[in-house]
């Protein structure tokens, strides 16, 4: 019995070591004064200071954040409506096509999605730039938002909404006043996750953006191709930190919901 426990402990340690080792090393290196990864030149924040003077990097970060904020908003609204249709409309006609198209981008190769979206923009004669970037990101993050909100809606007690309608509320009012507050934490989480995925995307952005709107991952990618650099380590660590904060927030929100659900 204790042998099995030991094995399980070893599996846990190895698993987490594998997952977090490279990230921890990367973050550590961003504070290394030396340019060489194998030489510890002392603790330093000079690579972070250098970032502040990298105009191109800052501009790219600005574009990425703005595109993520906007596209996540569109994706969440669309995702909420799509999730509502999937959770509440039962077996309507063309449900298979609708649901299939919603889930497909989860597993579709990004190069195919990026190429397809680009061809749509070219076909409609839309100049590639910030707008096309936002539209493209809103499209492929929508599936993540839908899956998340759909899960929340399925776990939601429908009788409350029906009670509100029995008392004379219109379906829209009943949804807005009863169900929406109940699933609000998941909607916020869906927004955060769509935001993070947009912020991270390299492939789809490369296909769909224009020269005026280079995103942060594109900027990082072009630097990484030239080799490992401490500045990239620093910006990476900042991004890791940002995601950690967003995840923490999301976890707090869903935990709040779990507690509320238990009490209700």
């Amino acid at each position: 019995m204790s042998g099995a426990r030991l094995l399980r402990l070893a599996a846990l340690l190895l698993g987490f070591g594998f997952l977090y080792g490279p990230i921890v090393i990367l973050a550590t290196m961003s504070f290394n004064a030396s340019r060489l990864v194998t030489v510890w030149g002392g603790f330093s924040t000079k690579w972070y200071a250098a970032l502040l003077h990298d105009e191109q990097m800052l501009r790219a970060a600005e574009i990425s954040l703005a595109a993520a904020a906007l596209s996540a908003l569109i994706a969440t609204i669309n995702g909420l409506l799509a999730a509502l249709a999937l959770a509440r409309f039962g077996g309507f006609r063309s449900r298979t096509l609708f649901a299939g198209s919603i889930y497909a981008p989860l597993v579709m190769p990004e190069v195919v999605l990026g190429l397809g979206l680009l061809l749509v923009f070219v076909a409609f004669g839309v100049e590639r730039g910030f707008l096309t970037l936002v539209l493209a990101h809103a499209s492929f993050t929508m599936c993540f938002a839908t899956v998340m909100i759909h899960a929340a809606l399925k776990g939601c007690d429908r009788t409350l909404e029906e009670a509100a309608m029995d008392l004379g509320a219109t379906p829209v009012r009943a949804f807005a006043l009863v169900t929406l507050p109940l699933i609000a934490p998941s909607v916020v989480s869906a927004y955060l996750l769509a935001f993070i995925i947009s912020l991270d995307d390299l492939v789809i952005a490369s296909f769909t953006t224009g020269p005026g709107a280079t995103t942060l991952p594109m900027r990082i990618y072009s630097q990484v191709r030239l080799g490992v650099s401490p500045e990239v380590n620093a910006i990476s660590t900042l991004l890791l930190g940002l995601v950690a904060v967003a995840l923490g927030l999301s976890a707090l929100l869903t935990r709040g919901r779990a507690k509320g659900g238990g009490a209700g």
Binding site: P22, P217, V228, L239
Partner: peptide, 25 residues
């Protein structure tokens, strides 16, 4: 265990360059 999935894909791949290179860790 799932949290790293939400961090940048590009950065997680990049982290392995530092580990695997000839003059790497």
């Amino acid at each position: 265990a799932v949290a790293p999935f939400w961090t940048s894909f590009l950065i997680r791949v990049y982290a392995w360059i530092t580990l695997l290179k000839d003059e790497g860790i």
